[in-house]
Amino acid sequence: MNSKEEILKRLAADGMPESPYPEMDFVPQRFEAREAVFAERLEAAGGRAVRMQPGETLDGVIRRCYPEARRIASTLPGVTLATVDPDAVEDPRELVDVDLGVVRGSFGVAENGAVWIAQDIRHKALYFGATALMIVIPQDALVDTMHEAVVRPEVDDFGYGCFMSGPSKTADIEQALVFGAHGPMSVTVVLRGEN
């Protein structure tokens, strides 16, 4: 008998009484000012949310939020400031320590300031290796809680995906909060309206 069979045999004999799949017997919280809550919780996680102003371009937001960024990697149409095409790079190591990555997110979650990113670029290294990350989501793509988030169609089919809430962080030295443990030091979520 191999290990799988052994484990399954032991589990079959565990004598545990049947427990049914539980129904959700409550209504999860709702936020009237969803965008404001999203922005506030993202800020609490060390990130920030910015709204694209009428007439503003993605380049404009980049310059507004990251005026110092020189090496910018993006595949998004409209980012003419990009100096690196991350999909043209063979070795993901080349994307490490670029000043800014500008990437597409699907939607945000108000209760925790997270954004769902379903990988649509060649190397996910950009999400974690860039010094700063700008995630662009449609302005009205916000849900209240994780209950709604995990059943969204964008979370139904993907190879790699991530709920990302603010920049990389740690408090492993005396509980002092430090941003930029390994991943981005700064994260900005851009709420993009119809311009």
Partner: peptide, 17 residues
């Protein structure tokens, strides 16, 4: 656990690259 609304990264690995 840590008093955060969610961990910074909740990553889902579904298919190998």
């Amino acid at each position: 656990g840590t008093g955060q609304a969610v961990t910074t990264y909740t990553s889902l690995y579904r298919r190998p690259a």
